[in-house]
């Protein structure tokens, strides 16, 4: 067994060991850190590794009610071309919220909603916004994404493939999805999907910072 000290590798700031949390955000340098993904047969590093994050640009005006929060979401490309299947209108990436592991079934349902949503997105060039800590590390995201694909694509895999087909997933990226959080109702401002969401406690209101960031881009 190896023990990883939960602290910022850059500034030594200690991280609180919160149940289920695997992505930690430093209050000092504001960077995100996560345990290195485990590779079969290799001893994992005892150090936390830095994680690149970016905020997705809202596609809708900020609603007046509720909090404006950033939901950490793993975006995992699906490489259908690696399989010999006709994709049609199937989703091309899994969008898996990285919070809410205590209610995994709800989480997959939410992920499936987001994954099925259409619409292009782009990231927001800003340094004003604060990333939230998250629960799912990259390897969790990989494992759960496979199930999200199964739950989101109708008619695939076919019966005879279900037990052995490999879902061809690309490298995951942890992005922050701007959302309106009104009580326990979370509505994302990119794809417009709404969901009952209980894991919003760790998400703080960033209405002001978001408005300023959007203004900066406009001007």
């Amino acid at each position: 067994m190896i023990l990883t000290r939960l602290q910022c590798p850059h500034c030594g700031e200690p991280f609180e060991p919160v149940d289920d949390r695997r992505v930690f955000v430093c209050d000092g340098c504001r960077q995100s850190f996560s345990p290195s993904p485990s590779v079969e047969g290799a001893v994992p590093s005892t150090e936390l590794v830095a994680l690149e994050r970016a905020v997705v640009r809202p596609q809708r005006p900020l609603p007046a009610e509720g909090k404006i929060v950033l939901l950490p979401v793993w975006f995992v490309p699906i490489r259908w071309d690696a399989l010999n299947v006709t994709v049609g209108a199937w989703p091309t990436e899994v969008r898996l919220p990285a919070l809410g592991l205590a209610r995994t079934q709800l989480l997959i349902k939410f992920a499936s909603h987001l994954t099925r949503a259409r619409g292009a997105w782009e990231t927001l060039p800003t340094s004003r916004l604060t990333h939230a800590p998250a629960e799912l590390a990259m390897e969790d995201a990989f494992a759960v994404s496979e199930l999200v694909v199964f739950a989101s694509v109708e008619g695939w895999p076919r019966d005879e493939q279900a037990d052995r087909v490999e879902v061809p997933l690309g490298p995951p990226r942890l992005l922050d999805l701007p959302c309106q959080l009104d009580g326990l109702r979370l509505t994302d401002l990119v794809f417009g999907r709404s969901q009952h969401f209980e894991a919003g406690d760790s998400l703080r209101d960033q209405r002001e910072e978001m408005a300023l960031s959007l203004n900066e881009i406009m001007s």
């Binding site: 067994m1 990883t4 939960l6 695997r22």
Partner: peptide
């Protein structure tokens, strides 16, 4: 409760335990 996480009773330092194989 999350069994992979440990916390020092005294200095409150947090640790993540993982398998080394």
């Amino acid at each position: 409760r999350d069994r992979a996480l440990l916390q020092c009773e005294y200095c409150r330092a947090g640790f993540l335990q993982r398998s080394d194989g």
